[in-house]
Design a protein around this nucleic acid. Sequence first.
DNA 1: TCTGGGGTCCTAGGACCC
DNA 2: TCTGGGGTCCTAGGACCC
Length: 423
Amino acid sequence: MKRPIAISDSANFYVSAERIFDPALKNVPVIVLSNNDGCAVARSDEAKALGIKMGEPLHLLRDKIKAHGVKVFSSNYTLYGDISRRVVEVYEDFTPNVEIYSIDECFLDFGGFKDRAEHARAMRREVLRRIGVPVRVGIAPTKTLAKCANDIAKKNPIFGGVLDMMDDTLADWLLPMVPVGDIWGIGRKTDAKLRQLGIQTASDLRAMPLRQARAVGTVVLERTVLELQGEPCLAFDDVEPQRKGMAVTRSAGQPMTDFDTVFQAVSAHVTRAAEKLRQHGLVAGTLTVFFHTNRHRKDRPQYAGSRSTRIMPMSCDTFELVRAARRCADAAWPKGQAAKFGFTKAGVMLDDLLPIEDRPRTLFDAPRSKSGEAMRALDLINDRFGKKTMVLASEGVNRPWQLRAEHRSPRYTTRLSDLPIVR
DNA sequence: TCTGGGGTCCTAGGACCC
DNA sequence: TCTGGGGTCCTAGGACCC
C-alpha cells in the first residue's frame, strides 16, 4: 500500500487565531484585514455567508459591516506566526515527520498508524485543547489527493473534520463531486481551459490523457493528473527548504509624487528587508527596487519602474543595501515626466540568498553578471598563464563565476588539482 | 583541420499558492 | 477618497559558447 500523507490545516486561520483570545467572537461574522487595512484576507464562516469575498476591499464592505455587526481586525502576523509554531508542536507529538507548507498547513507522514482516521481525530482534539484552533485533516496517497480530502472534509461537516481517502473506492465516489477548479494547482486560467475541454470535476481530470494534460498545462498539470491517479509526484519533504528570495512591499496610503517620498518608502522597505536577512542569517546577491502607480485607476497615467543590481560582495548590511537601492531607484525614476504620476506602491526584492557562512569569497572582483564578461576575464587569465593553466574563478553561487559544464575545450577542462598555484 | 549544431545560462513573464 | 503581501516553479526565447 502507498504511504499515507495527511494534510492538516486550520479553518480561517487568522480568524481562528483572533477567536482564541475573545470567546465573544464565536458564531459571529469576523474578518481580518490585509496590511494597511486594505482588504479582507480572512473571513469566518459567518462572514463568508454574508457574501464577503477573499480580497474584497474594505471600502466596499462598509455597509455590510454596519448592517451585520461584522467584527473587523487588522492583521497581526507576529501573533499568527507564534500560534502556528505551537500548532506544529502538537503535530510533532503525533508524527515524527512534519512538512510545514504554509502558516496554517502542514503535510504529515501518516505511515504506520493502524487507525489513521482515529489518530487524526485525536490530533485534532489535542490541537483544539492545547491551542484552541480547529483544524481539518485529509489523508490520501498523494499530496494533491490529500488536499482534495481535506477540502471535502471542510465542506461536509458530516466527516467531522477528518477524511481518510486512502481507499480507492472512496475516492471514486467522492472525486466526481470536486469541481476541477478546487483542485490544488488548478487556478483560474487552467480551470477555464479545462472546462472548455469538458473537464468539470476531479474525476474528469484524473481520466485526462497525460500527453493532453502536458499540452494544456505543461508538466505541472501532468503531475496533477498523476497525483490524482494516486501516483506521488510531489515528494514529502520535512527538511526546510533554503529560501530563494524575499520581498518587502507596501501600498502607500497617499499617492507619492516626488522622488524623495518614493525613496523614503523604498529605503524603509530595504531596511526592513536587511533586518529580515540578518534574522535568517542570510546574505543577498541581487537587489531589485520597484514602484508603480495605482493599477486600479485606469483613467490615470500608468508607470512601473524597476531596476535590479548585483550585491557584490553579497551582503545583509543595511548601509550597503540602501546604497544599492538608491542607485536602482535613481535609474528607474521617470525623469522629466515624473510629475504626472502618483505612485501608490513601492518595494524591494532580494534574491540569490545564501546562508552567511556560505558567502562566496571571490578571488577577483566579479564583472557584471554577463557570462561573456566572465569568459573574457578567463581568456585574459589563460593568455597570461598559458592555455593549459585554467583558473577556476569561484565557489559556485555567483553565476558569472560558476564554471560551466563544458568539457570539450581544453581551455575549460583542466582540473583544479592539476593547476599551478595561482593567487 | 573542424563555422554549425548542440548545449548552457539568463531574463521576463505567466500561473499558481497561501 | 479607499483595492494585500510574500512566495515558488515553469517556459520560451535570446545570448553566448565551442
